[in-house]
Simulated scan of single mutants.
Amino acid sequence: MPLDHPLNSLGFAKPPSQTRVVVAMSGGVDSSVVAAQLAEEGYDVVGVTLQLYDHGAALAKKGACCAGRDIHDARRVAEDMGFPHYVLDYENTFREAVIDEFADSYLAGATPVPCIRCNERVKFKDLLETAKDLDADCMATGHYIQRKMGARGAELHCAEDANRDQSYFLFSTKPEQLDYLRFPLGHLPSKDATRELARKYGLALADKPDSQDICFVPNGNYAAVIEKLRPGAAEPGDIVDTDGSVLAQHRGVIHYTIGQRRGLGIGGLADPLYVVKLDVDKKHVIVGPKEMLTTRTVPVREINWLGDDAFDAVAERHISVKIRSTKPPMEAIVRPLSATTAEIELLTPEEGVAPGQACVFYDNDSSRIFGGGWIWRGY
């Protein structure tokens, strides 16, 4: 049967005015532009902002997502563009689904990435269900990533602008979520293009700075947040070498990360030493030479696979992986151990691979993202 209407810009065969879209609005430039653009195109836009933590206490913190100022900015965009806007109190959900695990992971010697868990467990789960409750056809966000239709349905692809690509933080998006999500900014060539759109729509926040820190971690001070969440967590202990010899004392394992060199208080040695392992049970920060940070093998679990076949349908896959958000993908061989676990062989050894970080899978021959998993064992 022929369609009565051609597909609109969000992929639905009906006029924009009959297409309801919930826009997740953080109060930043990106999501504000998405909401303004869709409203300008005539969509039935509903803006939703999540209050994720005590925004009263967060007002003094600049560059934080979903703080009080951000809620005000999102509301103003909605008023200016003429669509409804709601603020939902998600403090308890956010703490249980994201903050508590963040604290416990750090205490266990891992280096967690709470922004991924927030997308996975809050924005693309609870908020997405809220969008469906509002009878929305889809939910749109300001993330820099692309959703493209392939032979077997929606696929996840890197953003056009590699410098803004957020695929590392969105690898755990499930296929059924991808069916419902839209990312209108993923095709833009740069953040400057987004700001130009903000000026085009007359948004007062066109020049608002990007958020830099994790929203609930002021000034990047992880240890202070952990101490507040888990009193007594920063217990002192020993900095030891790989033979167990005590070199110095530390003020708490939570102050250290794998690969760290500065701030160890063990100067004067012939060769620099790096944190190569954290032993939480013994309260030991273990240090060694730089070469001890190098590894080829990375164990990964909780894998979310976005390929066309079953993840464990083959013995090995030659793809690229990104094991740190700030580094480009590197060639690797993925050997599935089950539907959700694998051993990754890096073709070029890498330094400072840390448990708690993500390992994201990429196609070698296209911009497609095949999902990824979590690095789970220390080195």
Rank of each mutant, 00 (worst) to 15 (best):
G232V: 07
H157V: 01
G220C: 08
E176Y: 13
L170Q: 02
A154W: 02
K282V: 03
Q177C: 08
N221H: 14
D243T: 15
L197W: 03
G252T: 14
H157F: 09
R261S: 04
E176T: 07
D165M: 07
D271S: 11
Q166L: 06
G153W: 09
Y180C: 07
Q249I: 06
Y201H: 13
Y222E: 06
N163E: 14
P236N: 05
G153C: 13
A204C: 01
L197T: 01
Q260R: 13
A154N: 09
L264C: 02
A193V: 04
L247F: 06
P175Y: 09
K277P: 00
A224S: 14
G244C: 14
K191F: 11
V240T: 11
A154K: 05
L229D: 05
G267M: 05
V240G: 03
L178G: 09
L170M: 10
H284W: 15
I266E: 04
G232I: 08
D279N: 15
P231M: 12
A204D: 11
I258G: 09
V246H: 03
P209V: 08
D238T: 08
I214R: 00
E235P: 00
R199C: 13
L229P: 01
I226V: 11
R164I: 02
L273I: 06
H187N: 12
R251C: 12
T194G: 00
K228Q: 14
G232R: 13
L170I: 04
K174R: 15
L229K: 10
I214D: 02
R262P: 00
V225I: 15
Y222P: 00
P218F: 12
D192M: 13
K277L: 13
G232N: 13
R251D: 15
P189R: 12
V276W: 05
P175D: 08
V280T: 13
P184G: 11
E235L: 15
G259P: 06
V285H: 01
F169D: 01
A206C: 03
S167N: 02
T242Q: 09
Y201W: 10
E176N: 10
H250T: 10
R199G: 14
V240K: 11
A162H: 14
L188I: 12
A159D: 04
K208R: 15
F216V: 07
G186C: 06
P175E: 08
K228G: 02
V285T: 05
Q212S: 09
L278R: 12
P175K: 15
Q260F: 11
T194Q: 03
K200H: 14
I258F: 10
G186P: 01
R152H: 13
V280L: 04
N163C: 06
F183D: 00
N221K: 15
Q260N: 10
L278V: 08
A224M: 11
V275H: 00
E176F: 08
D271M: 12
L247T: 02
L264N: 02
K200G: 02
D238L: 10
F183W: 07
T242E: 06
I226C: 03
G263C: 10
A204L: 06
V285G: 00
I226E: 01
G268C: 08
L185T: 02
P272G: 04
L188P: 00
V253M: 12
L188W: 12
L178T: 08
Y168E: 11
G237P: 05
L205K: 04
D243P: 01
V240R: 11
K277R: 15
A248Y: 09
E235T: 15
L170S: 03
A154G: 09
P272Q: 06
R182N: 09
A193C: 03
D210H: 03
G268A: 06
D243Y: 11
